[in-house]
Amino acid sequence: MSERSTPTLPQRVAYIYGRTLPPSMREWVLRDLTGPGATRRYLLRVLVPILPVLALFLLVPGPLWMGLSMAALLYLPLIYFTIALTYVFRRNRLLRHDLDPALADAGARAKEEVQRADYERRHGRG
């Protein structure tokens, strides 16, 4: 039996919650963490599952705005730190799957290289 190259549903759920996938799925992990939509997937995986927990604040007796305010006091910093730590998270996940952590920002580096080459071409360097 050949090893799977994509995770099953239980493996995917475990991966979302931090578990490392088998080595046969490294290419899938690489595409997940560095491919198109990687940042969006990361943000959704962190920010959406917490919403039902925060909705429990709506059960607090009192006006609706009070429950919403308490939830917002937790959710807004979560959004901020989730965005701020995206790069760190992706590097860590790449390391845990025995992949090069420098791949986390390969797209940004490629874009900078194109801009640099264009600059040097326009200004007579290179």
Score class of each variant (00 low, 15 high):
89 F>V: 02
6 T>E: 06
26 R>D: 00
103 L>A: 12
101 P>G: 02
107 G>E: 14
65 W>L: 06
5 S>V: 13
1 M>C: 09
29 V>M: 05
87 Y>N: 03
23 P>D: 08
57 F>W: 09
65 W>T: 01
56 L>N: 05
121 R>E: 06
19 R>N: 13
93 R>Y: 00
95 L>N: 07
25 M>N: 03
122 R>S: 00
74 L>A: 11
38 A>Y: 10
75 Y>P: 04
116 R>Q: 11
81 F>H: 14
75 Y>S: 03
40 R>A: 15
75 Y>E: 03
111 K>Y: 08
61 P>R: 06
34 T>I: 07
58 L>H: 06
116 R>D: 06
88 V>P: 01
45 R>F: 12
104 A>L: 08
68 L>Q: 02
60 V>I: 14
43 L>Q: 13
78 L>E: 14
40 R>N: 10
109 R>C: 12
76 L>N: 11
51 L>V: 15
121 R>M: 02
31 R>T: 05
90 R>E: 02
90 R>H: 08
29 V>C: 07
31 R>K: 15
41 R>M: 12
31 R>C: 10
14 A>R: 09
109 R>G: 13
54 L>M: 12
35 G>Q: 10
80 Y>K: 15
42 Y>A: 10
123 H>C: 00
83 I>C: 08
15 Y>A: 13
2 S>L: 08
41 R>N: 15
33 L>P: 00
9 L>K: 11
116 R>E: 08
72 A>T: 06
38 A>I: 03
108 A>N: 13
94 L>H: 01
1 M>Y: 14
58 L>G: 11
15 Y>R: 01
116 R>S: 07
14 A>G: 11
44 L>Q: 15
102 A>K: 13
37 G>H: 12
44 L>F: 14
115 Q>S: 07
18 G>R: 08
17 Y>P: 02
13 V>M: 15
52 P>L: 05
31 R>A: 13
20 T>Y: 02
119 Y>G: 01
25 M>K: 03
43 L>N: 09
